[in-house]
Design a protein around this nucleic acid. Structure first.
Lengths: 138, 138
DNA sequence: TTGTTATTGAAAATCAATTTCAATTAGAGA
DNA sequence: TCTCTAATTGAAATTGATTTTCAATAACAA
């Protein structure tokens, strides 16, 4: 989990490596919590004080486009991002501190097939997300 | 599925019954599709042309507070609302037209318990949502 | 019918996100 | 290493959704 792979991916896709991008990438990649653009801005400015908020938005946009990060939907809002787990992953979020755990192993085919049959929908995708309290916040 | 129950609930909670509220309530309650505030505004103005957009926001806020409607989260955005199914319900959304079906019968306890054990999280809540194409849109 | 108080729509304000723009800088080629 | 050019930058302006303010209106209890 070093900062190199994401920067390399950006570079391989024709984007230049700048201080602003490095600061944003290192901040998001190193985080176990979902972060809003503003939170990324505040954290990344500690590494690179000249950083502008606009560059945060622009970098997050590119990281999302490359599927390196994903948007996190919560009752409290849908602006936060977390690194995209590899493969088909779901999220478990701490309602208190925002800490994120990934999990796979959902077996929803039986359910989705039954619902497809009943409703006549052609089911393409599913979202499964758990909320709770992490060990620290209980 | 008449418009009376929601209006009654509003009244019982100390809110007055006005033309603006009636128009918004009838629009949202009668819809099988998730609607954004702007869509509600456009539809409800056909019933009550003097309606202001602000009253749409204010009425939706009250309906959400009384758990009569719920916000719908989608990859394309999270501004739309649909009536809240009774009991523990999940959503199946048409990716094309936004039509919504409700379903229950998810049996995620085995999964959530396993994840709780592995992660140490105390799991409180889950979101399960399916996306696909409804019969009309296939 | 009257009085009070919640509710209204319009306009202004707010907030997050996007666009514009001139200055800067990464990095390819000399 | 130096030069050039196009991508990138941060600041400021703009946008679009939502919220707040406010004086006028209307619901509804007495």
């Amino acid at each position: 989990m070093t900062a190199i792979p994401w920067l390399t991916q950006l570079q391989e896709n024709g984007y230049r490596l700048t201080e602003a991008r490095r600061a944003v990438v290192e901040t998001v990649q190193g985080s176990t919590h979902a972060l809003t653009p503003l939170q990324v801005f505040d954290l990344a400015r500690k590494k690179y004080p000249a950083l502008g908020l606009v560059s945060v938005y622009r970098t997050l946009e590119k990281l999302e486009e490359l599927h390196l990060i994903q948007r996190v939907h919560q009752p409290s809002g849908c602006q936060a991002f977390i690194s995209a787990g590899s493969g088909h992953q779901h999220l478990l979020l701490c309602q208190n501190c925002g800490k994120v755990e990934f999990f796979e192993g959902d077996d929803l085919e039986v359910l989705t097939e039954a619902i497809a049959r009943r409703t006549g929908y052609q089911i393409k995708e599913h979202w499964l997300q758990l909320f709770g309290l992490c060990q620290n916040c209980q």
